[in-house]
Amino acid sequence: MKIMTCPLNGPRPVSEFFYWGEVRPMPNPDTCTDAEWADYVFNRNGAPGVKREWWCHTPSNTWFIAERDTEKDVVLKTYFYQGEA
């Protein structure tokens, strides 16, 4: 079974977690164009690589960031969201 480390609860089976996709900056809906908004809503960086992603440990409802290699299926780091630097 695959193990994911929750920053609050420690290592847990991945089936306890919910994946919510890559961390992506949202354009300002008041000022961006329709094309920019469509790009944000629909388009994804679908290529493999190391990605920063939103995950949630569902039993404790803990949201956090995981850095994961989507080709090797290896979780490199997990930590709480600190805001965008």
Partner: peptide
């Protein structure tokens, strides 16, 4: 493998794997 090829031509699409 579509997103890997799309990267070669710089096209953005909604496709995810």
């Amino acid at each position: 493998s579509t997103p890997r090829i799309l990267k070669m031509v710089d096209l953005r699409t909604p496709i995810y794997i």
